[in-house]
Each structure stands twice: as structure tokens, then as C-alpha cells.
Design a protein around this nucleic acid. Sequence first.
DNA 1: GCGTATTCTTGACTGATTCAAGAAAATAGG
DNA 2: CCTATTTTCTTGAATCAGTCAAGAATACGC
Lengths: 143, 143
Amino acid sequence: MATTSEYQRMLRGAAMRVTRPRVAVLSAVYAHPHADTDSIIRAVRRDLPEVSHQAVYDSLHALTAAGLVRRIQPSGSVARYESRVGDNHHHVVCRSCGVVADVDCAVGEAPCLTASDDHAFSIDEAEVTYWGLCHDCSTARSS
Amino acid sequence: MATTSEYQRMLRGAAMRVTRPRVAVLSAVYAHPHADTDSIIRAVRRDLPEVSHQAVYDSLHALTAAGLVRRIQPSGSVARYESRVGDNHHHVVCRSCGVVADVDCAVGEAPCLTASDDHAFSIDEAEVTYWGLCHDCSTARSS
DNA sequence: GCGTATTCTTGACTGATTCAAGAAAATAGG
DNA sequence: CCTATTTTCTTGAATCAGTCAAGAATACGC
């Protein structure tokens, strides 16, 4: 959690114009990690009831391009956004309810960054998604 | 590549009814690894010009549920299907053209299967996606 | 303040995928 | 082989996330 002026500073630091929708979107992503676009729109509208969905989409794209937020999209899910950037962390996703949690890199610094055969690709990122059942869903099933 | 009767045997082995659309879809997935649904529909219609898109969607879901094909969906891409199942391999995706290639598991058998903190999830799979530029796209950019 | 470039609003549109109802086809049993 | 039952396929409409486009509003350098 940060204050409005901190979000403004972050935007300026990324050479972006400071607008109310952008500050509200950045704040919503910080307040609701892994939220989908629709949840972010609803959160933003608690502050700014009149923002258009397009402004939120534009802001999310701009913030993602600037590296201030990160977009994730597990298979079968819509796009989700988080504020934790630049630390090479990964995600665990519940197959049943879709909830997402953060996972630090498993072994050492970048365990999976080296593919066994890179097919002449120049690889810049390795993204790991763990799949399973969250605590609630797995107890709900066994009971 | 396999013959029609082999695909039929695979379907029966999975306790699935053998229908022409399913055989054609299975064959198309084997012939076109990492193809999206639309490419598969077009490939299937070379054999069976009258199949509905819905039959292809249904077949792909049924084949995926039976474990005969695997569905992958990198961020920002539509669903893609492949016939290589059960061997814990991963994918490298080109950020520019979206092409997908297979990558064997990097280190040992299941390098990333152990999350550092599983948040009480029961994890059953670790999926690794490598991002970068394929050979063609990276030479096209530097030239 | 002013001017200009960027961003936001409005509203239509696309494209992948799903839903639903009835027709057709596949297996089990006789 | 024939029939019954269940699954699968066809047809056509609908949904949903996200994009496109044109003009109005706003931010910020001067």
C-alpha cells in the first residue's frame, strides 16, 4: 500500500503523464494483487465513478509497458495484474477456483532460465506456473 | 504420424466413442503441433468438409479431458493443442510472431516442481514457459 | 495562461468460445 | 442384424473480453 503522491511519483518516474484514472488504476492493482480487469474497473470506480472501461484498459496497457505493473494470464483465465515486478517470482493457480498466489523462485536465482535446447531462440524470461488445488478447494473435495 | 486405425485404437483405449470428427481432430493435432483451434478446424475440413466448428471444439475438449492431447495457452495467445503428452516438457514462445517450440525439462526430471512456499496448495504440475525471440524474428530485427 | 500532444469518453465492433435444442450416429443387448 | 439408449454432431444464436475509432477533455512544457 502506498499513498496517492507515491503513485504520482512512480508515474513521473516512468515518464508518464499523471492522470486520475492512472493513479486510481495503479492504486487498485496494489490493493488487489492478481485481480482481473473487471475487478480493477470496479475498484477504480469506487474512487472515480465515471471512468470508462477503455481508460482502465489503456492505463493497464500503459502501466504494463512501463513496467510498473505486470500482466499475467494463466491458461483458461482472463488477464490479471499485479504490482510485484522485477523480482522473478512465479505463481501457483488453483485448478478449481482460479485463485492465484505468489511463489518465490524455487531453487537459487533463476533455476529454469536455461532451456535444454533453445531452438535458436534468444530467451529473456522463464515463467513458471504451478497448478494444483488451493487449501479450501482441496478440503472441500475430500470432505 | 499415425494411421487412422491407430487413432481409433487410442480413442477406444480412452473409453471414448470413435467418430469421424474425433479421428480427424486427433490426426490434425498430431500433424500440426501447437496449432490453434482455427487451424485445426481448417485441417479437419480438408478430410471432412462438413464438420461444424462446434464438433471440433467438443472433440478437443473431450480429447483434452481424456489426456490424449494437451491444451496450452501462452499469455496473449488463443488456445493451442499438441499431441505430446505425459512427458513434462515445456515451451518456448516467440514474443514477436507467437511461434511455439518444445523444450525438454531443463534440469533433471522435474526441476521446478517444488515451490519454495506452496501456500498450502496441493501442486500437481509445474508449467514452464520461456519467452524470447525466435531465430527469424531476432535476425529480422537486428538487420 | 496557451498550445500541442496525449489521454479519456462514447459507442460500435470483433473474434474466440460457449450455450441450447433437436438431428444423427455409435455402441450395448437381444 | 435390429433396436434402444446414450452420446455426439449440427445449426444458429449468444456471451464475454478486449479492441477500434472519432471527437472531447486534460496534462504539461513553454
